[in-house]
Design a protein around this nucleic acid. Sequence first.
DNA 1: AAGGCGGGGAT
DNA 2: ATCCCAGCCTT
Length: 361
Amino acid sequence: MAIVSQNLKKNDNDLDVDAFRSAMLDWYKSNARELPWRVHFGERPDPYHEWLSEIMLQQTVVKAAIGYFNKFINLWPTIHDLADAHPDDITKEWAGLGYYARARNLHKCAQIISREYNGVFPNNEKDLMLLPGIGPYTSAAIRSIAFQKPSVVMDGNIERIMCRVFAHKLPLKDSKRQLYEFASYLSQDRTDYPGEYAQSLMDLGASVCISSTPKCMRCPIQQFCQAYKSGIQNDIPVKKNRVPKPERFGVLYFIENDKGQILFERRSDKGLLANMVGVPGTNWTDDAEESLTETFIPDFDISHTFTHFRLKLKGVRLLEKKQNDTNKKLFWYDPNEYVKLGLPTVFLKAVKQYLKVVKTR
DNA sequence: AAGGCGGGGAT
DNA sequence: ATCCCAGCCTT
């Protein structure tokens, strides 16, 4: 807190917190995005809806989450329905959204809320943080949005806004605590519409105070923004240089039987794409030659980028099972029915390519 | 404290 | 092609 007041005084015009919050709330009244989990200004959403949306939105853009949210609410209207669902059904419906640990934790959390909390979400930070999949951000978001309790909601958008409002020039990565202090200063345990205030910042970050070339002429808090005042809004937040992603290589086996089916596998419950359905193949290594343990004539290529590496795969058609070495659960399935499997994106791409190749021969 | 963990929207 | 997003969990 000492750092904050220093920083504010240094700029000779203390930020008027009341005016800042009023500007944000006024802007939000006429500029809020209409989203399926949102309610009217001043109303509180169903905590189940609010929680589900927050889990889906972790590291995910709003537009990508909307369809999934509607689908989940349709399939499982209450948290008890979700708690009683089969885990495989949940991962299948989650397929394509990524970060699949979220789906597992979603189910665990639903079961705890349903069975230990009788379906009622806790509204205090300590209990919320103990739930699987709920960390500092999601805890604060649920508290402020679903329960209108003052909380310091910090996400990537709000960090960026704090950076600019306070003209913070150090790299974002090293500034988490400082930026939290800025946001905390603006929150100050205010009880007036903490949920709407938090969402107003998120919407501002998504539409106006965007990462590159922010739209300051449309910004309701332009007058409070020290970066704008100094004309450095395009230069912050400062990002550290990113290391290029390494490449990995592998082979996928499309093993066919005489019924037009191919072999799929349920992946291990640990590591990348845990518990998801995929196509069997070699391990993915950083050595392109090593991945080709035998000489194949590949039928097609698949490339896919994950968080921390690029993957280049060769797809090859085989008429018999390669080996029985694996402890993974293998099963035959009609590749044309791939939609029902809930494949993660890399395998979705691969199967579509495979079908195209098969059709043209 | 650092690294693992997906995918796609926006540019 | 690159950036980065309504982060959390494990080690």
